[in-house]
Write a protein that binds this DNA or RNA. Structure first.
Lengths: 341, 341
DNA sequence: CTGAAAGCGCTTACAG
DNA sequence: CTGAAAGCGCTTACAG
């Protein structure tokens, strides 16, 4: 019942040529007459021949698959990035393997090893690094070995991995956002943030602190509630903030997912947005503009970041890691306004 | 500069055993003394040895990667499904390749071929099929050949692919939804739907038609606006509906993404929900409960569906395709209410 | 252009 | 248990 698929040798036989000629015809490389190439391809098509990637790669052909590691595909930030990678990958005839890391260094290491085992052409890692560099030392070592062996690595938002990197404009974005809230007149601002062990959170907060300082405010004097970097986390953070600081006029969530939770919690408590409390997010995920009120946020070009990081990964290695800054833009919608006189 | 990775032969040499023994030690198969196995693994660890999957698979080892095809990873329905597949896959030590089909039969065929070329253990396809079976004939043929060669295939929501299938409860879900709207007293209901060439749309609509018929209504007498199966599509459909039928009391979108667009469009036109118009979705994507108003919808267990379809794909082939129905539940939230007296 | 042959890095019968 | 050897399905120098 299990019937073998046609192999290259079968195609070659059927076409009456050597396996070498058939190989050249199928891989589209030079050194075959057009006539033979055409014949081989026709025969292959008729036989339903599909080259075995394992054999091809093992024999020295370049790998056609790339590995992508994300925190969690269901997090819209990563969904968008993955979309960009998949789009450009398909366009380049590349296959993409995706794995979850769950922001767990051990899981990340396991996933990296799996990609190494698959001898992928390049490994792309998206997602915040850890402020504590020691945590990611094993992964870094594995990636270095992979690169030493000719593999390529490119990352999004990981500063210290010794690889080409696309760097989201977290610091400047944080600053823009805080400036916006300050310009509206807010002073009693609370922050709903993910784990400060993440560089993403640390960087965004640093930018915010900078803007606050320019306005004579100290971030340390303001409520910063650390929670899960999710909708549920935003919801919980909001209750904590309102319970302890009922007089806040704005809540800045450090990503849109949290902001969605903030909006829901405020609604549940009957607090009007932006009438009583302004709310802002970060990332500008696709649904942000559809929320009610439409979310003021900092836009990061996530899908493009996905394409850019793959572009970097496809370039030959350079003597020193490349860095590409993303830029950002403040998107003011309906969820922020001046505080009530 | 490019330094070779350690091969199994290098490990074997360093451990002072044959390559066969080393292979057995590393793959965890039987036929090696514990002492040797332990030594080999220690040496391998020290050398940073990571087995080459291509060589392993080519030599006859079972493939450890599975292929997943989705319409578009950014569509939350597929995001959830992919999450389920990735989660179970990681747990089983499997690697997952993901590709976009964009609901384009040609792209789907290309992606299937790529997975076949990679000799994946199983191919999982999520996403609506086409009412016109002819459209997917080439893909079906390719999948049959793949299965004939010992590959496994499992699908979500594709009836006619001759493979194990997880079948979303589209028909019954549609009926539940329509019954809910009818029970509230709605009669002038409009539908914002994706392409009717998709079985998903056809099935949901059929269930709806059935419920309407029981209430003495004919779906053909009601406005059904076909648009892109997206937020933007929902927005456009809403404008079309309100322009042509300003007296509707409810708009049922056939997925949550469209419903999100419907809500936004109604807001833009100053129509209150559910005061003037009730709105419902389908799927219960994670953000649905966070919307304002929180969305009434039909819940499909998407993440579980992802796990289930992978489970099916990992089982040995059966004589005839297995089918697994998902069930559904109506989730009534704040976006539906009785029409205004 | 064309083809015979070596080799990629493993696994798995087959002997011992 | 242990190892020598064949073979998986390709690609790529190397000759012709």
């Amino acid at each position: 019942m299990t019937q073998r698929r046609a192999r290259l040798i079968d195609v070659a036989d059927a076409a009456g040529v050597s396996i070498a000629a058939a190989s050249r015809a199928m891989s589209g490389s030079t050194g075959v007459s057009d006539a033979i190439a055409a014949r081989v391809r026709r025969v292959a098509g008729e036989m339903g021949y599909v080259a075995n990637v394992h054999a091809r790669t093992l024999a020295g052909g370049a790998s056609t698959t790339i590995g992508l590691l994300v925190h969690e595909i269901g997090d819209p930030y990563f969904t968008e990035i993955a979309g960009g990678v998949l789009r450009l990958g398909a366009q380049q005839g590349l296959t993409v393997q995706i794995g979850h890391t769950g922001r767990d260094p051990d899981a990340e290491l396991t996933q990296v090893r799996a990609l190494v085992a698959n001898r992928v052409r390049a490994i792309v890692i998206a997602g915040s690094g850890f402020v504590d560099a020691a945590v990611q030392a094993p992964v870094k070592a594995e990636l270095q070995a992979f690169q030493a062996g000719g593999g390529r690595v490119a990352v999004i938002g990981r500063h210290h991995l010794g690889a080409d990197a696309v760097l989201p404009d977290n610091h400047a974005g944080g600053r823009s956002l805080a400036e916006h809230l300050l310009a509206l007149g807010h002073r009693r601002i609370a922050f709903a943030v993910g784990s400060r062990a993440l560089t993403t959170v640390a960087d965004r907060l640093a930018g915010i602190a900078e803007a606050l300082a320019s306005a004579g405010l100290d971030l340390d004097d303001l409520p910063v509630v650390e929670e899960e970097f999710t909708r549920a986390g935003g919801r919980r953070a909001t209750h904590a903030i309102l319970d302890a600081h009922p007089d806040v006029t704005a809540i800045a969530a450090l990503n849109d997912d949290m902001a969605i939770g903030v909006l829901a919690a405020l609604r549940a408590r009957g607090v009007s947005v932006p009438g009583e409390v302004s709310v802002s997010g970060f990332d500008d995920v696709p649904v942000a503009e559809y929320l009610w009120p439409a979310l003021t946020t900092v836009r990061l070009p996530m899908a493009e970041m996905g394409e850019q990081v793959l572009e970097l990964a496809l370039k030959p290695a350079s003597s020193r890691p490349r860095r590409r800054l993303t830029g950002h833009s403040l998107v003011v919608r309906d969820s922020t306004a001046a505080p009530r006189g």
